[in-house]
Computed example of a mutant assay.
Amino acid sequence: MRIAITGASGLIGTALSRSLTDDGHDVLHLVRRPARTMAEVEWEPERGRVDLARMAGTEAVVHLAGAPIGPARWTRRHKRRIRDSRILGTRTLAARLASMETPPARLLSGSGIGFYGDTGTTVTTEEGPRGTGFLADLVAEWEAATEPAERAGVSVAHLRTGVVLARSGGLLGTVLPLFRAGLGGRLGDGRQYMSWIGLADQVAAIRFLLERPDITGPVNLSAPAPVRNADYTAALGRALGRPAVFAVPGFAMRAALGGFADEAALVSQRAVPQRLLAAGYSFRHGDVHSAISGILDGHRRA
């Protein structure tokens, strides 16, 4: 299969590209500079430009590009950068794919469980209501931006991704040095739920969806068992054989990170992957203990 990927240099994109290439797929990377190899396609999302000649014959597109959400203070400028990188990029890509004589049959477009806002202890599926706040509004607009591709007959699914756990990068990779030093701990009171997914499952689920064009609309890419932050912290400490008794007070996080603290670090989101499970996807790591152990064991073997 000929598959184009935006955001191919990021945590998920790098792993996905490697997995597909290893299995013999023809993978194209959309890059924001002149293409240097036949495996690259230049695009300028802010200008509405994609080199469609290089996209000919593409059967599927996985759109993962977007500025990092955090951890960082959400200034007005930073929020605008987060929004523009997703909305403008998705609009450009969807419109240009729709203009092709033969558009790709499948588009998997990045999204997030931020759509649901703070769900507290309530379990939510893809049928759950939209929440409130910057991220909920962003995700709604982000997903709506694929409409031109949908109108052109492209099968579109939105990858509502949770916290991706990996040994390098992402939340886990960032805090591992602290936990190894015995300085790890919960965020706030630790009672908030975290909807997470291991990187291996993230990649496998995307590949599963590439083969299932009948699945359209939002799909939660998160493990079946969301976990409270305190339990996640304890599981990581046990896996490393280190104490995890420290805590970062919520007021301190709000003072340092503003909106990011309330909508990302301290928010409680208990999203489950109802549509993936109903479609027959089998998680490699369905609980956080096996996920962390698998990730750390892989790191030790490497």
Score class of each variant (00 low, 15 high):
residue 292 I to Y: 01
residue 299 H to T: 09
residue 180 R to Y: 09
residue 278 A to M: 09
residue 20 L to T: 02
residue 46 E to G: 05
residue 262 D to A: 12
residue 300 R to H: 10
residue 67 A to P: 03
residue 102 T to I: 15
residue 191 R to H: 12
residue 28 L to S: 02
residue 31 V to K: 11
residue 106 R to T: 15
residue 163 V to C: 08
residue 206 I to W: 00
residue 15 A to C: 08
residue 157 A to Y: 00
residue 47 R to S: 14
residue 97 L to P: 00
residue 158 H to L: 14
residue 8 A to W: 13
residue 207 R to D: 12
residue 31 V to F: 15
residue 57 G to F: 10
residue 218 P to Q: 05
residue 136 A to N: 08
residue 143 E to A: 07
residue 101 E to I: 12
residue 256 A to S: 11
residue 9 S to M: 02
residue 230 A to D: 14
residue 237 G to K: 14
residue 243 P to T: 12
residue 8 A to T: 10
residue 194 M to A: 10
residue 80 R to F: 12
residue 121 T to F: 10
residue 143 E to I: 02
residue 235 A to D: 08
residue 40 E to M: 08
residue 55 M to R: 05
residue 216 T to E: 05
residue 160 R to H: 09
residue 266 L to V: 05
residue 284 R to A: 14
residue 85 S to E: 06
residue 276 L to C: 08
residue 254 R to T: 15
residue 12 I to L: 15
residue 74 W to C: 04
residue 197 I to C: 02
residue 59 E to L: 10
residue 171 L to H: 05
residue 199 L to S: 05
residue 244 A to D: 01
residue 114 G to Q: 02
residue 229 N to S: 12
residue 14 T to M: 07
residue 173 G to D: 06
residue 226 P to C: 07
residue 106 R to Y: 05
residue 109 S to M: 07
residue 172 L to S: 02
residue 77 R to V: 10
residue 164 V to L: 09
residue 149 A to G: 04
residue 38 M to L: 11
residue 243 P to H: 13
residue 151 R to F: 13
residue 259 G to K: 01
residue 230 A to Y: 02
